[in-house]
Design a protein around this nucleic acid. Structure first.
Lengths: 159, 159
DNA sequence: CAGTTATTGAGAACGATTTGAGATTGATGG
DNA sequence: CCATCAATCTCAAATCGTTCTCAATAACTG
Protein backbone atom coordinates (compact mmCIF):
# COMPACT_ATOMS: atom_id res chain seq x y z
CA UNK A 1 0.00 0.00 0.00
CA UNK A 2 1.53 3.24 -1.15
CA UNK A 3 1.35 6.69 0.33
CA UNK A 4 -2.18 8.07 0.26
CA UNK A 5 -3.11 11.62 -0.62
CA UNK A 6 -4.22 12.07 2.98
CA UNK A 7 -0.71 11.20 4.13
CA UNK A 8 0.68 13.77 1.74
CA UNK A 9 -1.79 16.41 2.83
CA UNK A 10 -0.77 15.85 6.46
CA UNK A 11 2.87 15.99 5.51
CA UNK A 12 2.27 19.27 3.70
CA UNK A 13 0.42 20.80 6.65
CA UNK A 14 3.14 19.70 9.06
CA UNK A 15 5.77 21.16 6.81
CA UNK A 16 3.99 24.50 6.64
CA UNK A 17 3.56 24.70 10.38
CA UNK A 18 7.12 23.61 11.08
CA UNK A 19 8.44 26.33 8.81
CA UNK A 20 6.13 29.00 10.11
CA UNK A 21 4.26 29.19 6.82
CA UNK A 22 0.53 29.74 6.68
CA UNK A 23 -2.01 27.27 5.42
CA UNK A 24 -3.84 29.40 2.89
CA UNK A 25 -6.63 28.44 0.55
CA UNK A 26 -4.40 29.01 -2.44
CA UNK A 27 -1.64 26.77 -1.16
CA UNK A 28 -4.13 24.00 -0.48
CA UNK A 29 -5.67 24.39 -3.92
CA UNK A 30 -2.23 24.08 -5.47
CA UNK A 31 -1.54 21.03 -3.34
CA UNK A 32 -4.77 19.36 -4.46
CA UNK A 33 -4.02 20.21 -8.09
CA UNK A 34 -0.60 18.59 -7.82
CA UNK A 35 -2.04 15.34 -6.56
CA UNK A 36 -4.80 15.31 -9.14
CA UNK A 37 -2.08 15.10 -11.79
CA UNK A 38 -1.47 11.65 -13.19
CA UNK A 39 1.89 12.56 -14.61
CA UNK A 40 4.36 15.41 -14.93
CA UNK A 41 3.26 19.01 -15.44
CA UNK A 42 4.54 22.51 -15.94
CA UNK A 43 3.99 25.50 -13.69
CA UNK A 44 1.51 26.87 -16.19
CA UNK A 45 -0.49 23.65 -16.32
CA UNK A 46 -0.51 23.55 -12.55
CA UNK A 47 -1.89 27.09 -12.53
CA UNK A 48 -4.78 26.07 -14.78
CA UNK A 49 -5.46 23.02 -12.69
CA UNK A 50 -5.31 24.89 -9.39
CA UNK A 51 -7.62 27.60 -10.72
CA UNK A 52 -10.25 24.95 -11.36
CA UNK A 53 -10.23 24.40 -7.62
CA UNK A 54 -9.78 27.99 -6.48
CA UNK A 55 -10.33 30.63 -9.10
CA UNK A 56 -8.24 33.21 -7.18
CA UNK A 57 -4.91 31.37 -7.47
CA UNK A 58 -2.39 33.54 -9.27
CA UNK A 59 0.64 32.67 -11.31
CA UNK A 60 2.93 34.26 -8.76
CA UNK A 61 1.54 32.03 -6.03
CA UNK A 62 2.07 28.90 -8.09
CA UNK A 63 5.67 29.87 -8.70
CA UNK A 64 6.06 30.67 -5.01
CA UNK A 65 4.49 27.40 -3.88
CA UNK A 66 6.44 25.03 -6.08
CA UNK A 67 9.72 25.45 -4.18
CA UNK A 68 7.84 24.74 -0.95
CA UNK A 69 6.38 21.55 -2.38
CA UNK A 70 9.77 20.48 -3.67
CA UNK A 71 11.39 21.35 -0.35
CA UNK A 72 8.82 19.27 1.51
CA UNK A 73 9.57 16.38 -0.82
CA UNK A 74 6.00 16.17 -2.09
CA UNK A 75 6.92 17.24 -5.60
CA UNK A 76 9.89 16.22 -7.64
CA UNK A 77 11.72 18.59 -9.96
CA UNK A 78 12.41 16.62 -13.08
CA UNK A 79 14.52 18.84 -15.27
CA UNK A 80 17.22 19.82 -12.83
CA UNK A 81 19.67 22.48 -13.92
CA UNK A 82 17.75 23.78 -16.88
CA UNK A 83 16.00 27.12 -16.72
CA UNK A 84 12.65 25.54 -17.49
CA UNK A 85 11.25 23.55 -14.63
CA UNK A 86 9.28 20.37 -14.88
CA UNK A 87 7.47 18.84 -11.92
CA UNK A 88 5.64 15.72 -10.85
CA UNK A 89 3.96 14.55 -7.67
CA UNK A 90 6.36 12.50 -5.62
CA UNK A 91 4.18 9.68 -4.39
CA UNK A 92 7.04 7.24 -4.09
CA UNK A 93 5.38 4.71 -6.29
CA UNK A 94 5.53 1.06 -5.57
CA UNK A 95 8.17 -0.15 -8.03
CA UNK A 96 6.13 -3.26 -8.73
CA UNK A 97 2.88 -1.58 -9.71
CA UNK A 98 1.59 -0.10 -12.93
CA UNK A 99 -1.13 2.51 -13.13
CA UNK A 100 -4.13 2.12 -15.39
CA UNK A 101 -5.74 5.47 -16.05
CA UNK A 102 -9.20 5.65 -17.48
CA UNK A 103 -9.22 8.16 -20.30
CA UNK A 104 -12.95 8.75 -19.79
CA UNK A 105 -13.27 9.29 -16.08
CA UNK A 106 -9.64 9.67 -14.90
CA UNK A 107 -10.03 6.94 -12.35
CA UNK A 108 -6.70 5.33 -11.50
CA UNK A 109 -6.25 1.63 -10.87
CA UNK A 110 -3.01 0.25 -9.48
CA UNK A 111 -2.12 -3.11 -10.89
CA UNK A 112 0.63 -5.51 -10.03
CA UNK A 113 3.51 -5.54 -12.52
CA UNK A 114 6.12 -7.74 -10.85
CA UNK A 115 8.54 -7.47 -13.77
CA UNK A 116 8.62 -3.66 -13.66
CA UNK A 117 11.53 -3.03 -11.35
CA UNK A 118 13.53 -5.83 -12.89
CA UNK A 119 12.98 -4.37 -16.35
CA UNK A 120 14.03 -0.88 -15.22
CA UNK A 121 17.22 -2.16 -13.64
CA UNK A 122 18.20 -4.48 -16.43
CA UNK A 123 17.59 -1.93 -19.15
CA UNK A 124 19.44 0.77 -17.24
CA UNK A 125 22.50 -1.32 -16.62
CA UNK A 126 22.47 -2.53 -20.22
CA UNK A 127 22.94 1.15 -21.09
CA UNK A 128 25.53 1.62 -18.37
CA UNK A 129 23.18 3.80 -16.33
CA UNK A 130 22.24 3.67 -12.69
CA UNK A 131 18.54 2.83 -12.33
CA UNK A 132 16.50 5.50 -10.57
CA UNK A 133 12.82 4.72 -11.07
CA UNK A 134 10.32 3.33 -13.55
CA UNK A 135 6.74 4.10 -14.37
CA UNK A 136 4.36 2.04 -16.43
CA UNK A 137 1.18 3.85 -17.29
CA UNK A 138 -1.62 2.23 -19.24
CA UNK A 139 -4.42 4.33 -20.65
CA UNK A 140 -7.75 2.68 -21.27
CA UNK A 141 -11.36 3.73 -21.85
CA UNK A 142 -14.29 2.78 -19.64
CA UNK A 143 -17.40 3.65 -21.68
CA UNK A 144 -19.09 0.39 -20.74
CA UNK A 145 -18.24 0.72 -17.08
CA UNK A 146 -19.59 4.23 -16.99
CA UNK A 147 -22.78 3.04 -18.63
CA UNK A 148 -23.15 0.36 -15.98
CA UNK A 149 -22.42 2.83 -13.20
CA UNK A 150 -19.38 0.95 -11.93
CA UNK A 151 -16.90 3.59 -13.08
CA UNK A 152 -18.05 7.00 -11.90
CA UNK A 153 -16.44 10.34 -12.50
CA UNK A 154 -13.80 10.65 -9.84
CA UNK A 155 -10.13 10.35 -9.06
CA UNK A 156 -9.91 7.61 -6.51
CA UNK A 157 -7.16 5.09 -6.66
CA UNK A 158 -8.13 1.45 -6.59
CA UNK A 159 -6.02 -1.56 -5.90
CA UNK B 1 -5.99 1.65 -32.17
CA UNK B 2 -3.61 4.45 -32.99
CA UNK B 3 -2.05 7.19 -30.97
CA UNK B 4 -4.48 10.05 -30.52
CA UNK B 5 -3.65 13.63 -31.43
CA UNK B 6 -3.86 14.43 -27.73
CA UNK B 7 -1.11 11.91 -27.04
CA UNK B 8 0.97 13.52 -29.75
CA UNK B 9 0.32 17.00 -28.46
CA UNK B 10 1.42 15.89 -25.00
CA UNK B 11 4.48 14.26 -26.45
CA UNK B 12 5.33 17.44 -28.34
CA UNK B 13 4.88 19.62 -25.26
CA UNK B 14 6.98 17.26 -23.18
CA UNK B 15 9.66 17.26 -25.82
CA UNK B 16 9.77 21.04 -25.97
CA UNK B 17 9.97 21.40 -22.23
CA UNK B 18 12.51 18.65 -21.75
CA UNK B 19 14.70 20.27 -24.34
CA UNK B 20 14.23 23.71 -22.91
CA UNK B 21 12.37 24.95 -25.96
CA UNK B 22 9.41 27.27 -25.61
CA UNK B 23 5.86 26.38 -26.42
CA UNK B 24 4.99 29.23 -28.75
CA UNK B 25 1.77 29.86 -30.61
CA UNK B 26 3.54 29.38 -33.91
CA UNK B 27 5.00 26.03 -32.92
CA UNK B 28 1.61 24.82 -31.78
CA UNK B 29 -0.03 26.05 -35.00
CA UNK B 30 2.54 24.13 -37.01
CA UNK B 31 1.92 21.06 -34.87
CA UNK B 32 -1.84 21.28 -35.44
CA UNK B 33 -1.30 21.76 -39.17
CA UNK B 34 0.87 18.66 -39.32
CA UNK B 35 -1.79 16.52 -37.71
CA UNK B 36 -4.53 17.94 -39.87
CA UNK B 37 -2.70 16.54 -42.87
CA UNK B 38 -4.08 13.29 -44.23
CA UNK B 39 -0.98 12.48 -46.23
CA UNK B 40 2.52 13.71 -46.91
CA UNK B 41 3.25 17.39 -47.47
CA UNK B 42 6.04 19.80 -48.30
CA UNK B 43 7.38 22.55 -46.08
CA UNK B 44 5.63 25.07 -48.28
CA UNK B 45 2.28 23.29 -47.98
CA UNK B 46 2.75 23.08 -44.24
CA UNK B 47 3.35 26.81 -44.18
CA UNK B 48 0.04 27.48 -45.94
CA UNK B 49 -1.78 25.09 -43.66
CA UNK B 50 -0.23 26.49 -40.50
CA UNK B 51 -1.06 30.02 -41.62
CA UNK B 52 -4.73 29.08 -41.76
CA UNK B 53 -4.45 28.45 -38.02
CA UNK B 54 -2.10 31.28 -37.12
CA UNK B 55 -1.68 33.95 -39.75
CA UNK B 56 1.68 35.06 -38.28
CA UNK B 57 3.59 31.82 -38.96
CA UNK B 58 6.58 32.48 -41.19
CA UNK B 59 8.46 30.27 -43.59
CA UNK B 60 11.58 30.41 -41.43
CA UNK B 61 9.65 29.14 -38.44
CA UNK B 62 8.25 26.22 -40.39
CA UNK B 63 11.73 25.24 -41.50
CA UNK B 64 12.97 25.65 -37.94
CA UNK B 65 10.13 23.58 -36.50
CA UNK B 66 10.35 20.61 -38.84
CA UNK B 67 13.63 19.29 -37.40
CA UNK B 68 12.12 19.52 -33.93
CA UNK B 69 9.09 17.51 -35.02
CA UNK B 70 11.29 14.95 -36.73
CA UNK B 71 13.59 14.74 -33.73
CA UNK B 72 10.63 14.17 -31.44
CA UNK B 73 9.47 11.39 -33.73
CA UNK B 74 6.15 13.06 -34.46
CA UNK B 75 6.94 13.69 -38.10
CA UNK B 76 8.69 11.46 -40.57
CA UNK B 77 10.96 12.77 -43.32
CA UNK B 78 10.16 11.16 -46.64
CA UNK B 79 12.85 11.48 -49.29
CA UNK B 80 11.11 10.96 -52.61
CA UNK B 81 14.30 11.70 -54.51
CA UNK B 82 13.03 15.00 -55.83
CA UNK B 83 14.72 18.23 -54.84
CA UNK B 84 11.90 18.92 -52.40
CA UNK B 85 11.72 17.10 -49.10
CA UNK B 86 8.40 15.60 -48.11
CA UNK B 87 7.09 15.05 -44.59
CA UNK B 88 4.26 13.17 -43.00
CA UNK B 89 2.73 12.91 -39.55
CA UNK B 90 4.01 9.89 -37.72
CA UNK B 91 0.99 8.52 -35.92
CA UNK B 92 2.32 5.05 -36.15
CA UNK B 93 2.00 3.53 -32.77
CA UNK B 94 5.21 2.28 -31.26
CA UNK B 95 3.70 0.13 -28.56
CA UNK B 96 6.76 -1.99 -28.15
CA UNK B 97 9.26 0.57 -26.99
CA UNK B 98 10.05 1.98 -23.59
CA UNK B 99 11.84 5.25 -23.03
CA UNK B 100 14.86 5.50 -20.79
CA UNK B 101 15.45 9.06 -19.69
CA UNK B 102 18.74 10.08 -18.18
CA UNK B 103 18.06 12.16 -15.10
CA UNK B 104 21.43 13.86 -15.45
CA UNK B 105 21.53 14.93 -19.07
CA UNK B 106 17.96 14.34 -20.27
CA UNK B 107 19.09 12.15 -23.11
CA UNK B 108 16.35 9.78 -24.23
CA UNK B 109 17.00 6.20 -25.28
CA UNK B 110 14.26 4.15 -26.92
CA UNK B 111 14.45 0.53 -25.93
CA UNK B 112 12.56 -2.49 -27.07
CA UNK B 113 9.91 -3.71 -24.62
CA UNK B 114 8.08 -6.42 -26.55
CA UNK B 115 5.74 -7.26 -23.69
CA UNK B 116 4.47 -3.70 -23.38
CA UNK B 117 1.47 -3.78 -25.67
CA UNK B 118 0.47 -7.21 -24.50
CA UNK B 119 0.57 -6.05 -20.89
CA UNK B 120 -1.51 -2.94 -21.64
CA UNK B 121 -4.17 -4.94 -23.42
CA UNK B 122 -4.35 -7.76 -20.96
CA UNK B 123 -4.51 -5.50 -17.93
CA UNK B 124 -7.13 -3.27 -19.55
CA UNK B 125 -9.42 -6.11 -20.46
CA UNK B 126 -8.96 -7.66 -17.04
CA UNK B 127 -10.52 -4.43 -15.74
CA UNK B 128 -13.18 -4.45 -18.43
CA UNK B 129 -11.64 -1.42 -20.14
CA UNK B 130 -10.77 -0.81 -23.75
CA UNK B 131 -6.99 -0.46 -24.12
CA UNK B 132 -5.88 2.90 -25.53
CA UNK B 133 -2.15 3.21 -25.06
CA UNK B 134 0.68 2.38 -22.70
CA UNK B 135 3.86 4.10 -21.73
CA UNK B 136 6.83 2.68 -19.88
CA UNK B 137 9.31 5.25 -18.75
CA UNK B 138 12.52 4.36 -16.96
CA UNK B 139 14.58 7.03 -15.26
CA UNK B 140 18.27 6.38 -14.80
CA UNK B 141 21.41 8.37 -14.04
CA UNK B 142 24.46 8.60 -16.27
CA UNK B 143 27.19 10.07 -14.04
CA UNK B 144 29.76 7.50 -15.16
CA UNK B 145 28.91 7.92 -18.81
CA UNK B 146 29.26 11.63 -18.53
CA UNK B 147 32.63 11.20 -16.90
CA UNK B 148 33.75 8.95 -19.72
CA UNK B 149 32.46 11.36 -22.32
CA UNK B 150 30.00 8.90 -23.84
CA UNK B 151 26.95 10.69 -22.54
CA UNK B 152 27.40 14.39 -23.20
CA UNK B 153 25.03 17.14 -22.32
CA UNK B 154 22.58 17.05 -25.14
CA UNK B 155 19.20 15.83 -26.08
CA UNK B 156 19.52 13.41 -28.92
CA UNK B 157 17.28 10.42 -29.14
CA UNK B 158 19.03 7.11 -29.56
CA UNK B 159 17.63 3.80 -30.58
C1' DC C 1 -11.46 40.64 19.32
C1' DA C 2 -7.10 43.44 17.54
C1' DG C 3 -2.23 43.31 16.38
C1' DT C 4 1.36 41.29 13.91
C1' DT C 5 3.24 39.48 9.97
C1' DA C 6 3.09 36.21 6.20
C1' DT C 7 0.85 35.97 1.88
C1' DT C 8 -1.63 37.55 -1.80
C1' DG C 9 -2.78 39.23 -6.92
C1' DA C 10 -1.78 42.24 -10.68
C1' DG C 11 1.23 43.54 -13.53
C1' DA C 12 6.04 45.38 -14.48
C1' DA C 13 10.60 43.67 -15.24
C1' DC C 14 13.91 40.31 -16.57
C1' DG C 15 17.09 37.49 -19.44
C1' DA C 16 16.81 34.29 -22.92
C1' DT C 17 14.68 32.31 -26.80
C1' DT C 18 12.02 32.77 -30.86
C1' DT C 19 10.14 35.38 -34.25
C1' DG C 20 9.25 37.45 -39.24
C1' DA C 21 10.94 39.63 -43.40
C1' DG C 22 13.87 39.41 -46.53
C1' DA C 23 18.69 38.58 -48.16
C1' DT C 24 21.48 34.71 -49.24
C1' DT C 25 22.94 30.19 -50.48
C1' DG C 26 23.29 26.40 -53.29
C1' DA C 27 21.46 22.83 -55.84
C1' DT C 28 18.97 21.69 -60.25
C1' DG C 29 17.61 22.03 -64.78
C1' DG C 30 17.31 24.61 -69.03
C1' DC D 1 25.82 30.57 -67.74
C1' DC D 2 21.55 31.91 -66.10
C1' DA D 3 16.97 31.41 -63.84
C1' DT D 4 14.47 29.09 -60.49
C1' DC D 5 13.28 27.69 -56.19
C1' DA D 6 13.93 24.96 -51.76
C1' DA D 7 16.27 25.83 -47.78
C1' DT D 8 19.17 28.58 -44.57
C1' DC D 9 20.78 32.65 -42.46
C1' DT D 10 20.55 37.43 -40.21
C1' DC D 11 19.18 40.55 -36.82
C1' DA D 12 16.11 43.70 -34.59
C1' DA D 13 11.79 43.18 -32.43
C1' DA D 14 8.42 40.26 -30.10
C1' DT D 15 7.38 36.75 -26.91
C1' DC D 16 8.16 33.26 -23.32
C1' DG D 17 8.79 31.53 -18.67
C1' DT D 18 9.98 33.27 -14.49
C1' DT D 19 10.88 36.52 -10.78
C1' DC D 20 10.05 40.78 -8.55
C1' DT D 21 7.42 44.78 -6.51
C1' DC D 22 4.14 46.63 -3.57
C1' DA D 23 -0.16 47.82 -1.63
C1' DA D 24 -3.99 45.14 0.01
C1' DT D 25 -5.50 41.03 2.36
C1' DA D 26 -5.89 37.16 5.34
C1' DA D 27 -3.77 33.79 8.92
C1' DC D 28 -2.33 32.97 13.13
C1' DT D 29 -1.40 34.86 18.16
C1' DG D 30 -2.79 36.33 22.55
Amino acid sequence: MGVTIEDCREKFKSFLIKHNLRMTGQRMAIFEAVFKATSHFTAEELLDSAREIDRTVSRATVYRSLPILVESNLVREVDIGSSTMYYMPNTEEDPHKAQVICSDCQKIFEISAPFLQWYGSSVSSKLGLTPVSQRLQVTAACEELKASGVCTKGNEIFS
